[in-house]
């Protein structure tokens, strides 16, 4: 049917240099400094957790994914991001399981890359949070040596920790339960307790900013998130500084930085229009402030992003740009 001389193809005919694998591997590259920082502050154990999650994600993609999908790098991103949301002393088999669930149920079951509604890494984390609520809120104290593994990490598959460990606390947990604020400098450099990727706000911002500059992520999403969180928590803080944390604390504590730069901006699960991105970001920011201040859990970035992921199809529909020369709503679609 097709002749080699006359080839009819659909638009676009001019392509940019960016391709899915290129963007994805760039994201992977920009995550390397974040992983390194996590390793620096939390020790060898944190790197093992990230490695286990990535291994789970890659193996699942290899076994169940379509041919060649391993090379596009998206499974590696999912695994890395998932690992970064887990506590550094997390049992490795759970971490691995999280990677499997993230890819299998977060992505492949919807039909693979581009079809999934929810951020796969966060879906994996939500599964782990629901399945192992104690393990996922057990934070190391930070007083162990760099090479020291938490005894919980090596536990056999399906088994729990053999010993009770002394646990540390996250800045958000300290605030929620004991009303103790953490120093802003520590939050910025990353010398705090928490998940592996909840460390240095500075490093994460540099890495995310690189991606935004190269246009590999839509800067409006993190901007919308930070702006909303800052304004809303600032207003609450002005009303009652004893009850509500300061906006600086809200911005730099917990998983907000990692979530805003790397997870909310996932191309598949964020809106395609600019206005949609602003609304998307603002929604996440508002939900984060809502959950952190009035919810049962200290942290809410994961649920905020997942909830707004579910809104993305509507945001795309509502913010559809007008076709030139038509009125709103009568665009030929």
């Amino acid at each position: 049917m097709s002749s080699s001389r006359l080839l009819v193809t659909a638009s676009p005919h001019l392509r940019g240099p960016a391709s899915t694998p290129k963007i994805m591997w760039n994201v992977v590259g920009s995550l390397v400094p974040v992983v390194a920082t996590a390793g620096y502050f939390f020790g060898f154990g944190a790197l093992l957790v990230i490695a286990a999650a990535t291994l789970g994600a890659l193996l699942t993609e290899m076994v169940f994914g379509s041919k060649g999908s391993l090379g596009d790098g998206s499974a590696a991103i999912t695994g890395l991001l998932l690992g970064l949301t887990l506590p550094p002393g997390f049992p490795l088999w759970m971490s691995f399981l999280g990677g499997v669930v993230a890819i299998a149920f977060g992505k492949l079951i919807f039909g693979g890359l581009g079809q999934n509604m929810f951020n796969p890494a966060l879906l994996g984390r939500a599964f782990l949070q629901a399945a192992f609520p104690v393990a996922i809120t057990t934070w190391p104290t930070g007083e162990e040596g760099w090479w020291n593994l938490s005894p919980t990490q090596a536990s056999l598959p399906l088994m729990g920790a053999e010993v009770d460990t002394v646990t540390g606390a996250t800045p958000l947990g300290l605030w929620k339960f004991e009303r103790i604020a953490t120093d802003a400098v520590d939050l910025l450099t990353g010398a705090i307790g928490g998940s592996a990727g909840e460390t240095s706000a500075v490093v994460i911002t540099i890495c995310g900013g690189y991606l935004a500059l190269r246009n590999f992520l839509n800067w409006r999403i993190p901007a919308g998130i930070f702006l909303t969180v800052f304004v809303l928590s600032g207003a609450l803080w002005l009303i009652d500084a004893g009850r509500y944390p300061s906006p600086v604390f809200m911005l730099f504590s917990g998983g907000l930085m990692l979530g805003a730069w790397f997870m909310a901006t996932d191309m598949v699960t964020s809106p395609v229009t600019s206005r949609g991105c602003w609304i998307f970001g603002a929604g996440i920011g508002a939900l984060v402030v809502l959950i952190r201040n009035w919810g049962g859990l200290p942290e809410g970035v994961m649920y905020a992003i997942l909830l707004m992921n579910a809104m993305v199809p509507y945001l795309n529909q509502w913010t559809q740009p007008r076709v030139f020369g038509t009125r709103l709503g009568e665009a030929a679609s």
Partner: peptide, 8 residues
Amino acid sequence: DMITGATI
């Protein structure tokens, strides 16, 4: 002493 993981 509160229960670990069930503070609330």
